[in-house]
Amino acid sequence: MNGSIQPTLLVSAALFALGAIGFLTRRNLISVILSAEMMLHGVALAMVTFGKMHGNNEGQIFTIFILTVAACEAGLALALILSLYHRTKSLDMDLWSALREDDMPSPVGHDSSAGATQPDTHPVQPTLTPAGLPIDPKTPLTPQRPNREETATHV
């Protein structure tokens, strides 16, 4: 392995990895979206570099489309964040961990039981069958969640 890496590719890969760390660890919704935008920056940089290596404009064209999609994503994400904030009055992402499937463990760690308000608990919510379980045709599709309170207590 004697070939040396193109320097800009190193920067783009590092940007992608750092954005992935931010996406996975941060708990503020806005920081998560910003980290995703940073991953898009890394990809755009790699595209432009590949386009220059091949000597044509296609990499830059792809980056223009990445820019378009990033603008759409930012607008939609901010609208979503605003409506989520409207419900919980908080930007904490862990408040929404009750949206997971019932058989998954809680993603919330031990130290993160901060005193924030709970999201609106609607008494009747539509439920989906958990993936991988066979549907019993005799039971009606009514909202039944027996362990709902136990799994979501330490949110």
């Binding site: 660890t25 941060r26 708990r27 503020n28 920081s31 908080s90 930007l91 993603p107 993160s112």
Partner: peptide
């Protein structure tokens, strides 16, 4: 706020 001063895993 509290969720900014802690991170997940």
């Amino acid at each position: 706020s509290s969720y900014d001063t802690s991170s997940r895993q």
